[in-house]
Design a protein around this nucleic acid. Structure first.
Length: 492
RNA sequence: CGGGGUGUGGCGCAGUUGGCUAGCGCAUCUGGUUUGGGACCAGAGGGUCCUGUGUUCGAGUCACAGUACCCCGACCA
């Protein structure tokens, strides 16, 4: 059992862990490497889902569902892809239990061995392409744009709440196209959806870019990523979108007849984000008082705490709160009146701060007499007293300000920790202190690997929309010529 | 899988060279007073000390084995 850590600087990992548990987002599961997502945490995930889902649909994507179990033989197709996951697969070998002949509980019935083992999906490319094969015969069947919301299992050696759990929830989109151009455009479109979501909804500044061949998704031709900086300066891959070329189509023999009547392999993409985004939210915005939720993801955007001495006072405050609540809800704001009579106001303040509620209203006898309410913002911890008249409009505006401020703060933190670096000795030192370093790289996997071995740092991405730095220079490690800088960092 | 750490009421911990009926804080329950930043007083309930084996007159404490969790690595679209 780990001791509780209350400060970010004390031990970042443990602070993160404690915060996720104490803010009521999740708890440790009895099952190795798994977690229980509690109602409050799940409510945030549902918000993420609903926003993303509607964005997907705007691009023509439809939801579908494919099986949890994948026959082992499906995995013998795409060699490179399988090699990427083989080491971390859960395998179903039997279908029945029986009473232990020795009298202790139950054992696996040896008679019930499956003829072919089933793999619990670590990702669904194989089963989906096996299915698409039957759906596609003509150019008229294309494109196919499917997404599924589901769980996947990866038997990781070391797990971390939200960031790398044995089982996690995610969304995986899989598309099939008639041309390479169309597929590449789709991969680009989806990474843009992720970047917009991260920036505008999660208040998370991200760098969009290409993965180096070394860091690419197993089986992909190109992987696009959104990379975020956490408060300790480490990088977190928050979402990816892959252009798969014809690799999967060839492995699963998915062809179509084109307009000229010729057989052709289809072109593919896949893209996904997971409950890891929850981890990003905690690590990017949290402080020592707890979670800081961007208003657009907060299940409760405004909490109201009454401070009263008598029943009459209580009733008068609750009535006022009720009126404000109705006005706010009419404007689409989610509100909770914390009317629990067993807890004191100070306790409630601390509790809602821990849970990251963006705005807190407190009203007591003094406010009642003056027609005011105390407004506290979670992001800055500032308090002010405002007239209740027109408070709904004030709060709607405040929520927007908070959303923007959380983003600006995270962006400022990143800007302060991104720098160019052209000296290998300097690189080795600086990279350990939580920086993103923009460096020249000779483009070879060997060099990237050597840098990783020496410093644990990897190329997070070759940026395309921020920190783009197309200039001539020399590789930081080998000194060979380079045409652009790439982002190096230590990652989660 | 390697290194380190920790398993004692719901949670966080203390427990001396092995010794008497296993303690403390928080939480819970009852009663009362309180309520503008995690309330106070009084009382009550709640524990196979992770599991097994061993050493011993005697084990929460010592030894060995197992197991679970946490941290650091290795690993990780």
């Amino acid at each position: 059992m780990a001791k509780e850590v209350t400060s970010r600087s004390e031990n970042y990992s443990q602070w993160y862990n404690d915060l996720a548990l104490k803010a009521d987002l999740a708890e440790q599961s009895a099952v190795r490497g798994c977690m229980v997502i509690k109602p409050y945490g799940y409510a945030i995930w549902e918000k993420m889902q609903s926003v993303l889902d509607s964005e997907f649909k705007k691009t023509g994507v439809q939801n579908a569902y494919f099986p949890l179990f994948i026959p082992k033989s499906f995995f013998s197709r795409e060699a490179e892809h399988v090699a990427g996951f083989a080491k971390e697969c859960a395998v179903v070998t039997h279908h029945r239990l029986m009473n232990d002949p020795d009298g202790n509980g139950v054992v696996v019935d040896p008679e019930a061995r499956l003829e072919e083992e089933l793999i619990v999906r670590p990702t669904s490319e194989t089963i989906i392409w096996n299915t698409y094969k039957n759906w596609i015969t003509s150019w008229r069947d294309l494109p196919i744009l499917c997404n599924q919301w589901c769980n996947v299992v990866r038997w990781e050696m070391r797990t971390r709440l939200f960031l790398r759990t044995a089982e996690f929830l995610w969304q995986e989109g899989h598309t099939a196209h008639a041309t390479a151009e169309e597929a590449e455009a789709k991969a680009n479109e989806m990474v843009k959806v992720y970047a917009d979501f991260a920036r505008n909804v999660m208040a998370l500044p991200v760098i969009v870019g290409h993965k180096s061949p070394n860091e690419r998704f197993a089986g992909a031709i190109d992987t696009l990523t959104i990379e975020a900086m956490m408060q300790d300066g480490k990088a977190l891959q928050a979402g990816t979108s892959h252009f798969l070329g014809q690799n999967f189509a060839k492995s699963f023999d998915v062809t179509f007849t084109n307009k000229e009547g010729k057989q052709e392999y289809v072109w593919a993409t896949s893209w996904g984000v997971s409950t890891r985004l929850m981890g990003a939210l905690i690590m990017a915005h949290g402080d020592d008082n707890g979670l800081v939720l961007p208003p657009k993801l907060a299940p409760i955007q405004v909490v109201m705490v009454p401070i009263f001495k008598t029943d009459d006072e209580h009733d008068a405050i609750i009535a006022k709160f009720g009126a404000i609540k109705a006005a706010l809800e009419a404007k689409g704001v989610s509100v909770k009146i914390d009317d629990r009579d067993t807890l004191r106001p100070g306790f409630k303040f601390a509790e809602w701060e821990l849970k990251g509620v963006p705005v807190r209203l407190a009203m007591g006898g003094r406010d009642l007499a003056a027609g005011t309410v105390e407004v506290a913002r979670r992001d800055t911890l500032e308090k002010s007293t405002e007239n209740t008249e027109g408070i709904d409009a004030y709060i709607v505006e405040l929520l927007e300000k908070i959303q923007q401020n959380i983003y600006d703060k995270a962006l400022a933190h990143r800007e302060a920790n991104v720098e160019k670096c052209d000296n290998w000795e300097e690189f080795k030192e600086k990279i350990q202190t939580g920086k993103f370093l923009l460096c020249h790289w000779d483009g070879t996997t060997e060099t990237e690997q050597a840098i990783k071995d020496a410093t644990k740092a990897t190329i997070r991405c070759i940026p395309v929309d921020s920190y783009v730095c197309e200039e001539e220079g020399k590789c930081i490690f080998t000194g060979k010529p380079s045409h652009r800088r790439v982002v190096f960092a230590i990652s989660y």
